[in-house]
Structure formats: structure tokens, C-alpha cells
Write a protein that binds this DNA or RNA. Structure first.
Lengths: 187, 187
DNA sequence: TTTTGCCTGCCTAACGACAGGTAGGTTAAT
DNA sequence: ATTAACCTACCTGTCGTTAGGCAGGCAAAA
């Protein structure tokens, strides 16, 4: 297992947190899923706050790579904006899971400070990328990119939350379509 | 106290649930706030699921009254659409609290079925009212009212979630302004 | 008019389950 | 010999929930 275990813990914790939140993370359940004992997790993470922060950090690191890869692969900022909601759609496809950042935003008041900070990192990465791509696509003036990126991020998050509460991905698709029709998302 | 206690429990539970979710509701804390003992809550609610469902139901009943009153008072559907985000803003003003429905949408997977149902009721009430008012204001064709109402509800929910994660109401205001500028919300 | 009995509203005390966390030991590789 | 990786065993605290009791009110029966 070696430091394989650490990665396995992070992966399992991420999946669980996207379904049940930071509060839904249990050392016993997590350990069982990885195939070790609960106390052994402390060998890799000093505390639950530490684990939560590591999970959230890895989460935004991953999305940062994924988004940059998308832009590099397509080379087309407008196509990227078309594909963007898909990153949220995939969580719903995967067991009706939520964006970790959304879940932690809800749990905000009960999160250790380090976890709050890393959760915000996810939003920051998304907004920064959206701002960049919007400006590249000339869908936003440079001074409006951030605000528009934030609006897209918030709206898509809300759509994901709504669709989850109905266990119905088609609701997500319909909401995204309406966002496009209204002009919030470029067509 | 009499059935005063029941109302006090409902009110305290609502406030707590908007800050910490259904999972954050504790019989002991709740009872302490109301001035009784934890076990006494069972005299009013048969189980936590029962309490949760009652809180969520009362929540959408209240918003239904509030929205209808807004329309009756102003008599102006367009003005109502302008005022609508204010209902979400007020939760943030009140201790950075979230819409109960948003919180429960996040917690969806861990909620008793009855609680899920009542939480959805809040979204239904909002979407139905928005659809009606959008059509009245001629901001949407009758066949598009529901979809547009849903989009507004989801987007405003997302804005509230984002602002909460920064403890910054001005972020909410900025997001709503961007929604308006983009055409998602009527100006 | 008094008694009986049920009802409401709340109490104390405890249950088992599970939470995060700690102390200290074992094993195997370096 | 040291360290990494994991273990058993246990701690304290909190959770929802239950059993059973107690005080006061109200209403029918005596």
C-alpha cells in the first residue's frame, strides 16, 4: 500500500465528501473503504481538518489541470465555454454527487478555517479560468471578465444543486440551456 | 408555554438548519434554546425526520405567503422581479444564513424522504411564483415561464451560496447585478 | 360536590451507536 | 537501528431515542 494508501484515502474522502459533505466524512467508513483501520489514517493526516483541507486542495488542483488541458486541447475558448458546464454535469452522473466546493460552501459555518480556504480555492480557479476564457473568446470585456466568470460559476453551481435535489440530470441540462438562451452563457 | 413551545421549536430549528443544515440540528441544543429538555421535544414531534419535515414545510408555506403579499402590495410584476433576490439576501444579512432548501439540496442524500419532499416544496413555490410573475410582466412567453423561473431560482441560489462562502453580501449584490446585465434577470 | 381518570406538557435517567482522537505496540523495509 | 505503515484497545463526547414518572387541568361519574 505504502503512500498508495494516502492517495486512496484522498480519493475515497473526495467521493464521500461530494455526496455527504465534510461532516459526512467518517474515519471508520473511510478506512474500511481503503482497507485499513481508522487509526491508521492519522499516520497520513494529522487531523480531520488536515484531511479535509488536503481533499479540497487536491480537488481544485485537479480542476485547474483539467480546465487548462481543455483549453490546450481544443484551442478554442468559445468551445471551452460550451464544454464548461460538463465538468459539473459529470459529478451528477457519478452518483448524483455535488461539487465539493458547493457542499463546503453550505457547510461553511462548521468548517475548520484551513478547509474553508481550500474550498474557496476551487471557486477561485474556476472564476479565474472563466474570466480568461471569456476575454479570449471576446465574450467579455477584460474589465468584466471576472464578474461574468463569477456569475457563470455561481449559476452553474446553482443548477447542479437544483438538479441534485431532484436526482434528475435533465433538469441540469434544461437549466444550462435556459442560461444560454438568456445570454448568461455564450451560445 | 403550551403550544407556544412547538412554535418556538420550529423557529429555532429553522434558524439552526439555515446555518448548519438538517444534520446540524441537535435535540439538546434546540431544547436549550427553547428552554425545555431534549426529551420534551418528542411531545411535539415524533422524530427528527418529523421535525425536519415540519420545519421545511413551514418554510415554504411562509415564503408562499410572503411572495403573494409582495405581488399584492406592489401590484407590479416587474417590480416584484426586481425585489425577488432580496428574499435570499435577507438570509445572508441574518447571520450569513442559507436558504433552507439549498442546504437540504446539498444534504439531499442523507435526508429522510419526507424532508426531501418538503424541501422541494420550497423550490416549487418559488418557481411557480416566478413563472407567473414573469408571464404577467411579459418578460417571458407563457410556455417559457417555468423554465425561466427555474433558471432564476437556481442562479440566485447559487449566488447566495457563493456569497455565503465568502461571508460577503456585496458578492451577492454583484452577482445579481451581473445576472441583470446578462439578461437572466429583467432590468 | 367530590372523586376518578385521562390528557397535556414536561421531566430525569439512561440506552446503544458512533464520532474524532490517543497511547502504545507490531511488522517489515532501509 | 531507525523509520514508515499499520495495528489493537480505549478514551471522551455527542447523537437520536426510549422508558417511566410527575404536576396540573378538565371532564365525566359518583
Amino acid at each position: 500500500m505504502s503512500s498508495n494508501a494516502k492517495e486512496a484515502i484522498l480519493a475515497a474522502a473526495r467521493k464521500t465528501a461530494q455526496a455527504h459533505g465534510y461532516g459526512g466524512l467518517s474515519y471508520r467508513d473511510l478506512a474500511a473503504e481503503v482497507g485499513i483501520k481508522a487509526a491508521s489514517i492519522y499516520h497520513h493526516f494529522a487531523s480531520k481538518a488536515d484531511l479535509g483541507a488536503a481533499v479540497a486542495r487536491r480537488y481544485w488542483e485537479d480542476i485547474a489541470v483539467e480546465l487548462d488541458a481543455m483549453l490546450a486541447d481544443t484551442g478554442d475558448p468559445l468551445e471551452c465555454l460550451r464544454l464548461y458546464p460538463g465538468t459539473f454535469r459529470r459529478s451528477l452522473e457519478d452518483g448524483n454527487r455535488l461539487c465539493l466546493c458547493s457542499f463546503m460552501s453550505a457547510e461553511y459555518a462548521d468548517l475548520p478555517e484551513a478547509v474553508q480556504r481550500e474550498a474557496q480555492g476551487f471557486a477561485d480557479v474556476n472564476v479565474a479560468w472563466l474570466a480568461k476564457v471569456l476575454v479570449m473568446a471576446r465574450a467579455a470585456k477584460p474589465e468584466d471578465g471576472e464578474a461574468q466568470g463569477r456569475a457563470i460559476f455561481a449559476a452553474v453551481s446553482g443548477a447542479q444543486l437544483y438538479a441534485r435535489s431532484r436526482s434528475d440530470i435533465s433538469q441540469f441540462d434544461a437549466l444550462i440551456a435556459t442560461y444560454r438562451a438568456s445570454g448568461l452563457l455564450p451560445t
